[in-house]
Write a protein that binds this DNA or RNA. Structure first.
Lengths: 281, 281
DNA sequence: CGCTTGATTGAGTGCACTCAATCGGGGTGG
DNA sequence: CCACCCCGATTGAGTGCACTCAATCAAGCG
């Protein structure tokens, strides 16, 4: 048992490694920049320390398992974890499988806004209005941890390291949505498909899975929707990439794609990044 | 002074109104749905209670002011709050003004990924890797609260209601990025421009500002970049909307836009939402 | 076997892009 | 004060990329 004060201090200490850095005074100018510039050279030693991404993901998942002790459940392709518009109560942490998030507009347009894999969270977008903002659909057999949001909140209060983990996950999600937007807005369709494959490969590598042999769990229609083009265009682009030896189709269907040389494919994206939209300045 | 147990209980109590709802048992099926279906009809009574959005925003800002007591600063058009790639230490809460977030890819493409106004936060995307993911640029004179992230974290630990506020803000940000993606992917350019204006108007209304007379603080190039089209196309679309009486240009330059009938403009968006991309299913 | 669903490929079209000229406003300096 | 320039916005002409429509093919399944 601790009194209030020592309790606070202990929390502060537990928080310390996750905080960016205690800011000594008020920033002298507006830009978010250390007052003492020499600080800039100090490597940032927060939770985002220099472990490799896979290690960090594993540690994150261990943290959640220990502090929340969630139940988990197996899902099968097509299963829906939550529906847009329904009350939000639960978030999920993906242990395995691939999932798509589908947003629907009032007038019936639907859009795959995100793809999620092991280590990603599902449901954060529901926090804002107490209702889910999209459907979460499993594209493959998988397993998710079920975490009631109330439980998560309590855990965050008691375990600041859990809060840091959650913040980081949401921050990552924001970043990734923006990358999608950037891809759709600035790349021609051919380069966009190529970049999509690169991103998927990198994503797999980061999770310790095979990155040179992708098994897309989606139809061309899904792909096209996600990438902002028609299914025919997706098909044509993939065929062209195949013709140009940048990818190869697998034996078991044309949803299986081999990337012989990821670096070359990434170069291709850059070279094909013709300024499709207005240049700034 | 309280002992640990009562401290926990008090936190739980303080947290209660912000939690979705204590889930009594484990969900019987995977879908995020109350075990007792009658619950579905209980209005969600969390922080997202039935106040109007503007009231909620004001309350949120008051909460932050009280619990964090941030300093604030005036910014002028063109000021940069933080640069992509630089160490992340600080988040900002916007008191006034308009801001753009600019992402840059490795190969030099740049993309306006978000526009922010009063009540929005800036900097969350930097949490993930300890470095900012984009530039934040003021488009107008304004005022922001400066909140060191370490301070915010501490505040969240001590005041769960602050944590709830922060979660909600990040969740909202995720939602909005997705709306952008949906807009770019599913709308033809003409409808996209119209929807952009609708969104801006709704945004202003929600903040208690004039919604029928917009003053865009951006060039056509900025607009085009944000909307995923060229500046010429933006110009043509605006001219057409003007010709069709859906908008009117102001006396003081063509960045000032009057919307005589927002409902009609919104109808126009829907009618123009030709399925540009692959339909799902 | 026929049916269905998904993928590919072709032909033709149109929307949005590129290039280019013009216009207008605000600031500056002669 | 006016001429000039610069920047942003508009508009036109022409082109090409990605869309639409349509036919074909392949695989899975009752």
């Amino acid at each position: 048992m601790q009194n209030e004060r020592s309790h606070q201090i202990s929390q502060r200490e537990r928080l310390a490694p996750f905080a960016a850095r205690a800011v000594p005074g008020l920033p002298s100018n507006l830009i978010d920049e250390p007052a003492d510039l020499s600080d800039s050279f100090t490597p940032f030693m927060g939770f985002q320390a220099m472990q490799d991404p896979q290690q960090r993901m594993l540690e994150m998942m261990r943290t959640v398992r220990e502090l929340v002790q969630p139940t988990s459940k197996v899902v099968r392709p097509g299963d829906v974890l939550y529906h847009s518009g329904l009350p939000f109560n639960t978030v999920f942490l993906i242990n395995s499988g691939a999932y798509k998030l589908v947003s629907r507009s009032l007038d019936g347009r639907e859009q795959i806004v995100s793809l999620k894999f092991r280590g990603d969270w599902l449901g954060f977008s529901g926090i804002a209005f107490g209702r889910h903002a999209c459907d979460a659909v499993a594209m493959d057999t998988g397993n998710v941890s079920i975490i009631p949001y109330a439980t998560l909140l309590e855990g965050c209060v008691r375990h600041p390291e859990l809060m840091a983990v959650v913040h980081e996950a949401m921050s990552t999600e924001i970043r990734r949505e923006r990358e999608s937007l950037m891809s759709v807005c600035t790349l021609a369709s051919q380069a966009r498909v190529a970049e999509f494959l690169c991103a998927w490969a990198r994503s797999m590598a980061q999770r310790g899975l095979r990155a040179d042999e992708l098994t897309l769990r989606m139809t061309r229609a899904d792909l096209g929707n996600y990438l902002g083009m028609t299914l025919e265009t997706v098909s044509r682009c993939l065929s062209r990439l195949n013709r140009e030896q940048l990818i190869r189709f697998g034996e078991r269907g044309r949803r299986q794609i081999t990337i012989p040389d990821l670096a070359r494919l990434e170069k291709y994206v850059i070279s094909g990044s013709s300024a499709r939209t207005a240049r700034l300045q």
